[in-house]
Write a protein that binds this DNA or RNA. Structure first.
Lengths: 336, 336
DNA sequence: CCAAAGCACTTAACCGCTTAACCTGGCAAA
DNA sequence: TTTGCCAGGTTAAGCGGTTAAGTGCTTTGG
């Protein structure tokens, strides 16, 4: 196996406690010895065993993040910023992907417990309340996305879907659009429902009738179908809001296939501001919800919860920001 | 803290060794007791502490994967399939992202050592040979992508860039293209060099002069610039091969801005078959290099190396496959 | 001038698990 | 009946660290 702290201690002619104190920067070691130990560590190429360290200190200094699908372009940036912030705060970060599968979600949660994490950011909705209670029982800090109320060990990251949708609707309205369709996502996902409801409410507030609401599936294919469908409508909408970017890209393709030009005939908007939005052709007008901030905030929230003696969950707002690109423009002048 | 194996042992009226034997399925426990223990574990909601387990068994049963950028759409699928396969083989998987930064690459490697992984899949090129030696010294299995020769503990995953490029060139040639440009990537990356060289060689083999070779940066922006540049060329190429999909998407945008239609005036091809290729407009003709297979193979290779008594690294081939989509077509008929 | 305090360490008892070595009772073979 | 053996346990010694308590100095205050 590898070297142990005892090997280092022997080589440096000190006790293991001294080596440990040097490596943990407790300040209990004199400067001469400190340097000597550090030198020996370098010379031998010693790395402390993380497992032993966690076990002995009764503190894993680890944060976990559970996402539903790492391939979904929404998550990588969240994961990345989570991991970076966790490291800055002195934590190790571990990731689990559930693939939208409740069984794997349970396994992911169990993995977090086995690793004795101090906190876990849950970025998926397929999690049972039993598991959440289990986390609470073990005093493991938790953050949720949108779901669940704030409690002792539970903080909440609320993405401001309403504001995001509102910005789109108002922008389209100002650009002269009056018939604005909506392509929905999965009817069971809270975040999708929130967007749909926000759309309905914002339309009404501007005195507009919520236009055709077409089902989708959050995927490209659903958008494609919806786009083809909308291209055939008469009188069709002059703008289409999609529940996310991927759907919007599908919609654009569907509309083009159906003979509509984007944005000359119909404007299309997305949601999430994934890379796709930027690279799409035409590039997408969409809403950015600061995924990097999301990851960072999750790590910060967990740190705060797990450090406090009397933890009190908080609610964090993730702002949404309208990003104008090529897929939207002024409404075409009516010829009917 | 949480429950320990002692709590379970006490509650079930057996020794800790028995509980351990049940949980590890060693088959040394009678059926009655087995069931009793399992029941007690469920009832109390006990999860074994992974750190203690790893420490005591002197075996982390963990595989690591180091990637350069999780946000790069190439990696998530690799990571996902790696992680799935690792779990199937009974391993825990940990991920580190280096962000193309040598310092963070070193930290990632150190993290792997601290976690005492049995093997690590290195999917980045910014790694120093010192670290590789360090892995070898500790008998940690390693797989590399393209780089490095096969050795005792080192296997190699070779993506068949040559075949991929060759398929594109031959396809374009058959479609009547004779002037085929190439947009390069980073001149230091081995994988990029391999593609460029393959392009040169394949062109020559077909009796074609390697056309303009335009620098790029693997990013959208580089492609955009290159596309604008090429649109101005006269006589311009009738086809453009980009070093990767992202560049290709940029190229398309650049060409469109420069007044060229894709694929009517100019065909464009990508490389990697990221999701982007599918969603781009027009969708991209590209080469799929089976990223899921890559991740799985890496896990398999590490498993094999770390289990063998006399490990001998092997070379694994990752096949490449041409995917035809909308961004390419027959060469326009010359009018000069 | 002596006790108390401070400094720079060492000693050794854990952390929660695994596992080799050691028991024990019951049954088949001698 | 004795012996041997095996299935089905238990005991206890680590794994590689951390850390509270202890030790032998030197310094300091009254």
């Amino acid at each position: 196996m590898g070297l142990t702290i005892r090997d280092v201690a022997r080589a440096a002619g000190v006790s293991t406690a001294t080596v440990s104190n040097v490596l943990n920067k407790t300040g209990k070691v004199g400067e001469r010895t400190h340097r000597l130990v550090l030198l020996t560590v370098k010379r031998l190429g010693y790395f402390p065993n993380a497992h032993a360290r966690h076990l002995a200190s009764r503190d894993s200094r680890t944060l976990g993040i559970i996402v539903s699908d790492i391939v979904n372009p929404f998550f990588p940036e969240v994961i990345k910023s989570f991991e970076i912030r966790a490291r800055q705060l002195g934590y190790d970060a571990i990731l689990s992907d559930t693939n939208y599968d409740p069984r794997r979600t349970r396994e992911a949660a169990e993995r977090m417990m086995e690793h004795n994490v101090r906190g876990v950011a849950i970025m998926t909705s397929e999690i049972s309340s039993r598991l959440i209670l289990e986390f609470e029982r073990r005093r493991i800090a938790v953050t949720f996305l949108d779901l669940a109320p704030v409690r002792g060990y539970v903080s909440k990251l609320r993405i401001d879907y309403f504001s995001g949708i509102k910005q789109i609707v108002e922008y389209l309205h100002k650009s002269g659009h009056r018939r604005i369709a909506f392509i929905a996502g999965r009817p069971k996902l809270k975040s999708n429902i929130a967007r749909l409801e926000a759309y309905r409410q914002c339309m009404r507030e501007l005195g507009l009738e919520p236009g055709p609401i077409v089902p989708g599936d959050l995927r490209f294919e659903g958008g494609l179908t919806a786009g083809l469908h909308i291209a055939k409508l008469s009188p069709g909408p002059t703008a289409v809001m999609a529940v996310n970017d991927l759907t919007a890209v599908g919609v654009i393709k569907g509309l083009l296939k159906g003979g509509c030009r984007v944005p000359q005939d119909i404007s299309v908007t997305g949601f999430d501001n994934t890379r796709l939005a930027e690279y799409s052709n035409p590039s997408l007008t969409t809403v950015d919800i600061h995924r990097d901030m999301l990851g960072q905030m999750a790590a910060d929230a967990l740190h705060e919860l797990s450090c406090s003696a009397t933890p009190q969950g908080r609610e964090y707002q993730i702002p949404a920001e309208l990003i104008l690109r090529e897929s939207s423009g002024p409404a075409p002048t009516e010829k009917s």
